[in-house]
Write a protein that binds this DNA or RNA. Structure first.
Lengths: 202, 202, 202, 202
DNA sequence: CATGAATGAGAATTCATTCAT
DNA sequence: CATGAATGAATTCTCATTCAT
């Protein structure tokens, strides 16, 4: 069946992407060779170039796939008529779960894409900016509704919130923070509580 | 005379380090060649290797120099009998001022070391961890004195605080946040207020 | 078809090895560049590294190929029920013929491996030693059978024999000894006669 | 005193040469840097170039010094009215003693000069050839006087003799032959007896 | 004489990418 | 689609030699 053939073709592409995630996570984007990806995927060297124009495109693809999901999720959350606290919890939860579900992929995105955001194509930077802006928009409307303080700019608040989330992921990636099942849930609550309530007693 | 000679000997080394900061900031550690550093410094290629064993060692040196200053500053702040809020403000201020004083250097440290989980970040993990621990210790003692809530772990609080600071710097580095003179001062206050007071109205 | 394809794949590897022999012989292992080998072989620079891990590995391969043949030959000779004089003549003949057949290769082996006490010679010591030991074993059994004097240790006798052979090759290599067709045959006999009968009249 | 000054100057030169012997023996001519020689000698880097034009010249000097002594000795031996057996014993003894007295220097000469005789300046090759010719002359006159067989060419006989001697030294250098006090004396006798009497019983 | 900083050509090796099959 | 041999530009690091002091 031609459908089966097409599925198989897609399968190999997926195989390569998944292998790339593992290899990038293990050795870093710069630290690995295209050959390593092919080996990890168990496919021929040249096949990588059949499906992807370049090594960069593999990373681009991985990033865009997942970052796109996140943007969709943030937009979806934003559209709901929920308290800002719940919205932020949903976003933090989504990112934390993304890491829980596929730590290698999130490691690659944070370490190899976010880090190199200015050396890579500017397109990534726009995607990243879009996330901050969506979060900023959530903050902004919550400020208008009186849910959040107005003396801190929305953009800044978004950075503080996202920075806290990313730092927790970095902590896990660098083996600085403990990483047990309960830590994931706790992290989400801690982040929201720290950012919304502050560290000082109320 | 011999002192002058010794200073002159050191001069070129410093010249190379300063040139490396600019080149790393402009092209990224991986994106530049050792030749670029030598050119930028106006010295012969080989002299770079006279003073440094490798390209890596240059980055290591830059990182350790500045990170060491930061660790000293945090330790100094910790030792003072001030409210935790002032301590955190002093630390955030120091980091923000480090960026204001030498944005290229901080960019290099954040982009090429702090987030490089597979290369430099990993090899300087102890130094990086030390910073978190010092901040965590400040939080912990403030929790004991009742200045801060006790239901969020010190380590986690330290991550949230440092994450917010670093993200603000990242915002400047990646041209996401506005970067005017008043923004630097404002940033320090915003960070402390966000982390201590929270975004929700009190 | 697939056999032909496989042969073709091997062809380039052989091309490189043969080119390396000529280049090493002409310029010496240290005196040539990998680019010279690639040029001489008429292949792209990178292909050398496709087939060999390093410049060293090329020399290792050349040495082991031929030295292995020699060890086999010596072992084969040793196993035959012939007079020791004939055995030594067979070994000397094999080495002399090796030179006659491929003087460049033997030059490389002697100049760059066998005498290189600090690099290749040291790392191939076991193979080199094995040759002496095989020859020593031939001497030893000839001493037991009364064919050879017993007052000279087998190891020493092996060194004297091999030393004479190698020095003759060195003489050819360095243009000290005349090198005509009849010299090759004569050399074999001279060596055996010198070592077995001695230079003094009997 | 100006004499003392001049002696001191000479001392440093000697210091460098002696250090070079040790370094060359340890790491090989190609495997060491000029800096290693300076360090080993305990002198400043630049001083090496004050006394020698180049790294090559250091090796040249070492070789010519000792090889010259050997040529003198062979010529001296040749001039004496002694049996050829004694002459060869004197030459073998001189070379063996040279090694016993300064193994590093002989190692350097055999491994780094003799080996590279065709890549280095041709002048070395002429010196080496001169030694063979002197020995060949000794053989030739012994053949005329009936002390040695006439059916083996003098040049060839010289090669066999010198080859046996050098191989014994190589055996020591490569740790293949035992190297105790008595081995040195035995070696000399074994060499002469093997070459003059042959390995077959008389 | 003595020092060691400064120079820069050179070489091995790597690896993304192409291409013939 | 699949394969992996072939290409060659790029870059780090080495180190003999020079030179200013």
């Amino acid at each position: 069946m031609s459908t089966a053939g097409s599925q198989q073709a897609t399968e190999k592409r997926r195989l390569i992407l998944d292998a790339a995630v593992r290899v990038f996570a293990r050795e870093g984007f710069h630290g690995c060779r295209v050959a390593d990806i092919a080996d990890e995927a168990g496919v021929a060297y040249g096949l990588v170039y059949h499906y992807f124009r370049s090594k960069d495109e593999i990373l681009d693809t991985l990033f865009l796939e997942r970052w796109g999901l996140m943007l969709e999720e943030i937009a979806r959350v934003d559209a709901e008529p929920a308290p800002v606290r719940e919205k932020l919890a949903a976003i933090a939860g989504f990112i934390v779960d993304s890491y829980r579900y596929d730590p290698d992929l999130m490691k690659v995105i944070i370490v190899d894409v976010t880090r190199a955001a200015n050396s890579f194509g500017r397109s990534h930077l726009d995607e990243i900016r879009a996330a901050y802006e969506l979060i900023g928009a959530i903050v902004e409307s919550a400020q208008k509704s009186g849910e959040l303080r107005r003396d801190i700019t929305p953009t800044f608040a978004a950075m503080a919130f996202y920075g806290a989330v990313e730092q927790v992921l970095s902590g896990w990636i660098f083996d600085i923070l403990p990483e047990a099942a309960e830590d994931y849930d706790q992290a989400k609550e801690f982040i929201v509580s720290t950012i919304c309530d502050g560290l000082e007693p109320r």
